[in-house]
Nucleic acid binder design. Sequence first.
DNA 1: ACCCCCCTTGACAGCGCTGTCGAAAGCGTA
DNA 2: TACGCTTTCGACAGCGCTGTCAAGGGGGGT
Lengths: 363, 363
Amino acid sequence: MEKTALSLSETGRLPEPGAASTGRPRMVDVAEVAGVSLKTVSRVINEEPGVVDATRERVRAAIAQLGYRVNGPARALASHRSGAIGIITEATAHFGPTTQFLGLERAVWAAGYSVVVASLKTRTAPEFSLAVDRLLDTGVDGLLINGSNSRPVSLAQALPADVPTVSVGDPPTGNVPADANLLYAYNDQAAGAGQAVRHLLDLGHRAVHHLAGPLDWVPAQLRLAAWQRTLRTAGVPEPAPEYGDWSAQSGYEAGRRLLARPDVTAVFAANDQMAIGLLRAAAEAHRSVPATLSVIGFDDIPEASYLPVPLTTVRQEFKQLAVAAVGQLVSQIAGQETTRLISVPTTLRLRDSTAQPPSQEKK
Amino acid sequence: MEKTALSLSETGRLPEPGAASTGRPRMVDVAEVAGVSLKTVSRVINEEPGVVDATRERVRAAIAQLGYRVNGPARALASHRSGAIGIITEATAHFGPTTQFLGLERAVWAAGYSVVVASLKTRTAPEFSLAVDRLLDTGVDGLLINGSNSRPVSLAQALPADVPTVSVGDPPTGNVPADANLLYAYNDQAAGAGQAVRHLLDLGHRAVHHLAGPLDWVPAQLRLAAWQRTLRTAGVPEPAPEYGDWSAQSGYEAGRRLLARPDVTAVFAANDQMAIGLLRAAAEAHRSVPATLSVIGFDDIPEASYLPVPLTTVRQEFKQLAVAAVGQLVSQIAGQETTRLISVPTTLRLRDSTAQPPSQEKK
DNA sequence: ACCCCCCTTGACAGCGCTGTCGAAAGCGTA
DNA sequence: TACGCTTTCGACAGCGCTGTCAAGGGGGGT
């Protein structure tokens, strides 16, 4: 027994001095080539102070010579920081979520972290929890939730309290627990939707209809609520909304139902894709836009300007939002005080799909 | 949820006996609670054989009680496998790349790996190398390259030989080095484009024009080449193509140039977005589709059916492709033999944007 | 009844890095 | 010349897990 132990420690796969040709070079190999200690190499790599320039150069040369690269897991284990941030995102190719996701991804790398992604195919709580678990198992330092969350309450519940998290895209809804680890960054949906509706009212429309998104998406709820609020404030009756699922197809179908109603002259669609579907339904119904029907969308997708009728829409600044959110998260990870809520303004892009209603004199 | 809350409040999550009651529970804490060795806990967690059911249950209970979760970096360090796969992707919200990316992401998780992402804003070699470096520094076990690569040669050059890699989306071009670590999975672009062009020829069009994508994207090259080949085979003259950048806007502009030419009756656009722009240009030029102009796209984006004229297009099966690619990569990581090239077929989706040319009798 | 072998479990040495702390060297001042 | 201070560097002990190998215990074959 002791014999075995002894012989083991004796053989102990010690690399012969000067020759470490096996496998990937390690930090100790670099140290040997540079003629310095392991720790000094570590200092150079992490750009810590207290290393004289000549030594630093020697180490850098050794690194280049061996083609050394750090072992992420080893570093994470020793330093208790993985340097990774997890992003939970919707598994949809929709313009909004995708653009926002890419913005976040780039902002995270720019902040010096790597990005681990888990996508959600359904909007169910179990799948959300599963995604969180997966990300936490990889050891992420923080979490970004991209896009809307259908479960404003369970969101906070499903998140462990000890991982800094920023929910990006939606403002908190309902009674938000004052849990300091859950922050929010979002586009000002309500203001944007309000602007859109007011624009239509200002043009002289007696009624503004709404083609809403699926109500398990917070942005859909917010845009709907802002539409209602704006109408109420203006003292205008509030017609029943039609609902879609963000897709052009659903916009087309909802559009057909909408256009079958009397007196529909202006429609605020909750996103551009549905507005596209609506435009198709209008064409089929021989309603010319904007002469007899005004349409306004939300997002400002790149195609918006190049539709048969260039689409008036509400633009969201995803890049700006992403940078703000990542800044917030990184501060939080560093243990600094941060703003709990960040709101990024939206802007109304006027194009050709909105005009005065056909019969002005009726007033 | 209530269960969790209850058990949490009951146990108070403080393992007393051990000294290290601070912070996250470790495997040794679980071992202590379960009354087994560290190694046995490891066995249970990794579902290794050789643990009797009773013991297994005891360990599982201890894990649940403590709320233990594995430390990814520690496991990666000890096992020499990070369990992560890196995906390099284009930083665009375009339908094709995004859909393909999401397919890959889900397929990777399904295969039991986590996903680290690096996006590319530009198509330059330095940025590509940077992305590879970042991913390798995090310790990924394999690499997926999502979408096209502009640099068929430098792609292989920029990749280290010791990391299994699958290029997803494009077939290899030019002389591919027989480097066993670089595999390919792709949609059969050439066949799809060929089908599209042949469809237009079969309808009786005397010429088929092409609205090509940017030539630094391999799919753009392939679709262009297939268009040329099909025309040549049919003995039809090959007009100069117009070029766009995949966007609706560029499609609109190229469409205007195209429609200014005489005798343009059929256009094969390299993607659906550009086809949308082209449709807009046609509307402005008072060319009705498909009566006086046939248009065909590529991708089959969800909106394609709901455009003013439902778009005939070539559908790509991204999900199927993703699953195949990940299977290929995982086998490669496991050191098994794999197919070096996987091709997934595309299909022509006939809708309303293609018809016979206006003047048939000219034939 | 005995032996052998397999099945289950545990002890222990790292994986490659960082954090702590102390040693050595350099430098100004008395 | 000697002293104390700062700057630069190295020794060493883990971080939390897995892989290897050995130990113990029970069942089947003879």
